[in-house]
């Protein structure tokens, strides 16, 4: 399902412009990371995808739907949105009930709900914790519950707001696996993140925002090369890229394996 954002402008009721004309197309199956400083408009942009915010002017299209003509509840069929803080959504007595809530709200058949919930629990490695109360779990696992609860809605597009914040190495790896698995099943994954290394290693395309505008948009390879532009938005280059640069590599690398390959070849 393609996403088309054209000339999107958004102003808050007090007149402050949060988005100043954003045009981005995201084809089916994309792996896109959005980076930029707090206040650059990243969250404002993605909240337009599921109708939580409506364009002041311009157009946001999800497949054949114009978001202005659809309710948030309808758009929930197409966009799964994982909020940053899991505590803003957890309310059920067990992990399983929590994960069932989304697909139930969408009115899926019981059999389908069962299958989707099982798959989501499997993917997030929550199987053994299915009957526990989400609030008895650690914050890192609560984040997994929030993730599972959105994955079970089986939307073609999944949006994650800061998936790795406050997570340890094991759980960041788990999130990487989830991203890759979603990508493998043909879904579009969009993540807002400050973690440039996570972003370089797991995504294919990077959109850099600054002051309500897209300043860079392209394959990771090209975007991470733009050191000055990134620095102007307070984003550092990935650690591997910096290392390669210090060693005087002529090609841009950003993954440990690519680094070893280039090192080997030279």
């Amino acid at each position: 399902m393609n996403i088309e954002i054209k000339e999107l402008v958004f102003a808050y009721p007090n007149g402050v412009l949060a988005l100043e004309g954003v045009t981005v197309g995201i084809p089916t199956g994309s792996l896109v990371a959005i980076v930029g400083q707090n206040g650059a408009g990243k969250t404002t942009l993605v909240k337009h995808l599921n109708g939580l915010l409506r364009p002041t002017s311009g157009l946001v299209q999800i497949g054949d739907w114009d978001t202005r003509q659809r309710s948030v509840a309808e758009l929930a069929n197409r966009i799964g949105f994982i909020f940053q803080n899991p505590d803003d959504q957890l309310f059920c007595r067990t992990v399983k009930e929590e994960v069932q809530f989304g697909p139930r709200s969408l009115g899926f058949e019981n059999d389908r709900i069962e299958t989707l919930v099982e798959a989501a629990l499997e993917l997030t490695e929550l199987h053994e914790k299915a009957s526990q109360n989400p609030y008895d779990l650690s914050p890192a696992w609560r984040k997994m519950v929030a993730l599972a609860s959105i994955l079970a809605m089986d939307t073609p597009i999944v949006v994650m707001d800061e998936p790795t914040t406050g997570q340890d190495a094991v759980s960041i790896e788990r999130i990487s696996r989830i991203v890759q698995s979603l990508h493998g099943s043909g879904k579009t994954v969009i993540a807002i993140t400050h973690d440039i290394d996570f972003c370089a290693e797991n995504f294919e395309r990077m959109i850099v925002m600054r002051q309500g505008m897209v300043v860079l948009d392209g394959p990771i390879q090209e975007v991470v090369a733009e050191r000055e532009m990134l620095a102007s938005t307070y984003v550092e280059q990935p650690q591997i890229t910096r290392l390669a640069k210090r060693l005087g590599f002529s090609t841009i690398v950003y993954k440990p394996d690519d680094f070893i390959r280039v090192l080997h070849d030279s």
Binding site: N50, S71, N77, I79, F83, Q89, S105
Partner: peptide, 16 residues
């Protein structure tokens, strides 16, 4: 402010 975020999060899960 928190209540608004919670409402957004739940509506995103299809809550009417």
């Amino acid at each position: 402010a928190r209540a608004v975020t919670i409402q957004d999060a739940q509506r995103s899960r299809g809550l009417d």
